[in-house]
Design a protein around this nucleic acid. Structure first.
Length: 575
RNA sequence: CGGGAAGUGGCGCAGCCUGGUAGCGCACCUGCCUUGGGAGCAGGGGGCCGCUGGUUCAAAUCCAGUCUUCCCGACCA
C-alpha cells in the first residue's frame, strides 16, 4: 500500500480529549476518530488491526469447534421481557420503539437471541453439544464511557454460547474455550494471564477472566510466584496457614478522648498504637438493611466478598446521616460495642487477636482493649478483606504478587439460567425433557486493540506485536525525488509484496524527519529505510521497532535478510 | 446521578478579570528553497467565539439558563 494513496491522518499533538496512552496513540496514529461520546469511527489503519485480531479469534474459535453466525444488533423487547432482564438490566440497555410502538433494544449481549434461536431449532440430545459465536458490534449505554476504545458505548465483541446435554459436557465446552482463549492471546503476541473471577450478576458457577498485563490496567490481579494461581483481586481468597493460638487475656474496655481523630491513621498516631491494633467499623446499607463490618485498621474491605456473603443486590456505604442514626455519632467514631445495628460481621483475621482500639459511638471518643469475642455480638467471621502482597498464596502458600491488567476476555459457565427462563430444552436418551446447560464466552475485540497499545508502546508511539500490526513492514523512501532512492524503494516494495509481505510504502514528498516520526508513531514492527547515503554504500537499513536495533542489508539480499530479521522479531513475541 | 474542569478556524491554545478591529503555533493552499529525525523564507484561504435569552450605545468578554465534551466515583468485554 502506498501511503500517498491511503488515508492515515496522523496528529503531532495529543488531542485534549484523550487521557490514557492507548486513546492518545489511537487518535494520533490516525486509527480512530470520535463521532460522539463513547462511539468511534475506525479509520483504515485501526480497522485493519481489528481485522487481524478478528481473524485470529475466528481461526482459533473454529479450531476448537465453535461455529460462526451473525445475529442482529437490534433485538425485540419481548425476548428480554421473557428472560426477565428487561426490568433488571437497567438504563445501560438502550431501548426504543418502532413505528408500531413495539419495544426494541440495541443488543448489549446476545443470550436471549441465541437461546431463542436454539430452542426453536434444537430438540434432541443428538444435536448437542453446539457452540455458536459471532463477532459483532454491541451497544451498552455506559454510565460513563471513557478512555477511548477501552470503555466505549459501542464496541466490537466476539461472543460465543455453548449448549450441552449435561454438566460434564458443559465443563468440557468451558475447558475447550479456556484452551481456545489461551491460544488466541498467545497468537496475538500479548502478555496475559487467565485469572479466577467473580461471576458477577450474570450468575453461574465459575468463570475466568483473561487479563492483558499492563501497568495502566484498571484491574488488579493477584498472581502466585510459584504455582499457577491467579485471581482477580475481588475474588482472591485470603487464607491462613494455620490457626494461631487464642490471644492472651485482654484488659477491660476503657474509654479515651480522641478529639477530631476520625481516620485510622489519625487515631493510630494520636494513641500511639499501630494501625493493625485498630478495628475499623464500616457501616453499609444492604438492600435497605443496616450492616456493620469489622476489619483491621491496616486492611481494605473487599466489597465483592461482602456482597456475595450477604447475597444482596444493592450494597452501598452508609451515608453520613445513616452513620449518625446507627452509631449515634458522626462518621469516624462507629464501633461494634453499643452499635444500633443488628447484623455485625467481622473479617476472619480478628479471631486471632484482641486488645484493639475501636470507635465508641460517641463523638471524639474511642475504646481501648476491645476483644471481639468478649465485647461484641458478631454474627460470623469470614474472609472479607482484600488480599495483599504479604499474604500467602491460597493454593500453595508461596508469595503473591499484585499486578495490573486489562480485562479483555471473560468466560462463564452459565448453567440453565437462560435455558430455563426461555425454555430451551431437549429430549435426552430416555425421552425426558431437560434444559440445556449453557456457557458464554466473550472477548472485547476493540478493547484488545486498546489493551495491546497500553502494553506495547514507548514515548514515540505504538509498538505493534506482528500479529496485530496493520502491516508487516513500513518501507520509507527518504527522498523520493532522488531517482535512485525512488527506484530502489519501488523495487524492494515489489519484491516483498511478491513474497506475501504486506508492506506500507511511505512514498510521500515529505522530509525524512516527518517520515521517521510517523513510522515510530504508527508502530509497525519493522521499518525498511531506503536513503541516498546508505544506498551509496550499497546497503539499506532495517529498524526493529521494539528494540530500536538497526541492521544493514546488502542490496542483493534484501528479501532473505528481511525475512531473517522478521523471524527474530517473531521469536521475541514467542510466535 | 453526585463531585470537578472545559467549550474561541481541522488540531493544540491565548484573549475574558478591566466590554470597543478575533489572535498565536501546527495543519492547509501558492511560490522559492530544503531532504537521515516533525526545516526555512515569502504570500494566501478559512472562525455562527457551543446554543438561547438578558444587561449595554456596544458582548468572545458581564448575568441567567441550556446543550455538549472530558476527568474522579457506582457499571463492564
Amino acid at each position: 500500500m502506498l501511503w500517498s494513496k491511503y488515508y492515515i491522518p496522523t496528529l503531532k499533538e495529543d488531542p485534549a480529549e484523550a487521557e490514557i496512552v492507548s486513546h492518545k496513540l489511537l487518535l494520533r496514529a490516525g486509527m480512530i476518530r470520535k463521532l460522539t461520546s463513547g462511539i468511534y469511527i475506525y479509520l483504515p489503519l485501526g480497522w485493519k488491526a481489528l481485522q487481524k485480531i478478528s481473524d485470529i479469534i475466528r481461526q482459533e474459535m473454529n479450531r476448537f469447534g465453535a461455529i460462526e453466525i451473525r445475529m442482529p444488533a437490534v433485538q425485540p423487547g419481548d425476548l428480554w421481557k421473557e428472560s426477565g432482564r428487561w426490568d433488571v438490566y437497567g438504563r445501560e440497555l438502550l431501548r426504543f420503539q418502532d413505528r408500531h410502538g413495539r419495544d426494541y433494544c440495541l443488543g448489549p449481549t446476545h443470550e436471549e437471541v441465541i437461546t431463542d434461536l436454539v430452542r426453536g431449532e434444537i430438540k434432541s440430545y443428538r444435536q448437542l453439544p453446539i457452540n455458536l459465536y459471532q463477532i459483532q458490534t454491541k451497544f451498552r449505554d455506559e454510565i460513563r464511557p471513557r478512555f477511548g476504545l477501552m470503555r466505549g458505548r459501542e464496541f466490537i465483541m466476539k461472543d460465543a454460547y455453548s449448549f450441552d446435554r449435561d454438566d460434564q459436557g458443559a465443563t468440557k465446552s468451558y475447558e475447550d474455550m479456556y484452551a481456545a482463549y489461551v491460544s488466541i492471546f498467545e497468537k496475538l503476541g500479548l502478555k496475559f494471564r487467565a485469572v479466577e473471577a467473580d461471576s458477577g450478576p450474570i450468575g453461574g458457577s465459575f468463570s475466568h477472566e483473561f487479563m492483558v498485563l499492563a501497568e495502566t490496567g484498571e484491574d488488579t490481579i493477584a498472581v502466585c510466584t510459584e504455582c499457577d494461581f491467579a485471581a482477580n483481586l475481588e475474588k482472591a481468597e485470603v487464607k491462613y496457614a494455620d490457626t494461631p493460638d487464642s490471644p492472651a487475656d485482654c484488659p477491660e474496655l476503657e474509654k479515651v478522648f480522641t478529639p477530631d481523630k476520625h481516620s485510622v491513621e489519625e487515631v493510630a498516631k494520636f494513641l500511639k498504637v499501630p494501625e493493625e491494633k485498630i478495628v475499623k467499623t464500616l457501616l453499609y446499607d444492604a438492600d435497605g438493611q443496616a450492616v456493620a463490618v469489622l476489619v483491621r485498621g491496616d486492611r481494605e474491605l473487599n466489597e465483592v466478598k461482602l456482597k456475595n456473603l450477604l447475597d444482596v443486590i444493592d450494597l452501598r456505604l452508609a451515608s453520613a446521616e445513616q452513620v449518625q442514626q446507627w452509631s449515634g455519632a458522626p462518621v469516624g467514631f462507629a464501633g461494634p460495642v453499643g452499635l444500633n445495628v443488628d447484623v455485625i460481621y467481622a473479617d476472619q483475621e480478628l479471631m486471632f487477636d484482641n486488645d484493639f482500639v475501636i470507635g465508641a459511638n460517641e463523638k471524639d471518643t474511642h475504646y481501648l482493649h476491645f476483644d471481639p469475642r468478649r465485647d461484641a455480638k458478631i454474627k460470623g467471621y469470614y474472609d472479607l478483606r482484600q488480599i495483599t502482597e504479604s499474604d500467602p498464596c491460597p493454593r500453595c502458600g508461596a508469595k503473591i504478587e499484585l499486578t495490573k491488567g486489562i480485562e479483555v476476555g471473560h468466560i462463564f459457565k452459565l448453567g440453565t439460567k437462560y435455558s430455563e427462563a426461555l425454555r430451551a430444552t431437549f429430549l435426552d436418551e430416555n425421552g425426558k425433557e431437560r434444559p440445556m446447560i449453557m456457557g458464554c464466552y466473550g472477548i472485547g475485540v476493540s478493547r484488545v486493540l486498546a489493551a495491546c497499545i497500553e502494553q506495547n508502546h514507548d514515548e514515540n508511539g505504538i509498538i505493534f506485536p506482528p500479529p496485530i500490526a496493520p502491516f508487516d513492514a513500513h518501507l520509507l523512501a527518504l527522498n523520493p525525488k532522488d531517482e535512485l532512492v525512488k527506484d530502489k524503494a519501488s523495487e524492494i516494495y515489489d519484491a516483498l509484496t511478491a513474497q506475501g509481505i504486506d508492506c506500507l510504502f511511505d512514498d510521500r514528498l515529505e522530509r525524512p524527519g516527518v517520515k521517521f516520526k510517523d513510522a515510530d508513531l504508527i508502530g509497525l514492527p519493522l521499518q525498511i529505510i531506503v536513503g541516498a547515503r546508505a544506498l551509496q554504500r550499497g546497503v539499506i537499513e532495517i529498524k526493529i521497532r521494539h528494540s530500536g536495533e538497526k541492521i544493514e542489508l546488502g542490496l542483493d539480499e534484501i528479501v532473505s535478510g528481511f525475512q531473517e530479521v522478521q523471524k527474530k522479531v517473531f521469536e521475541f513475541y514467542r510466535l
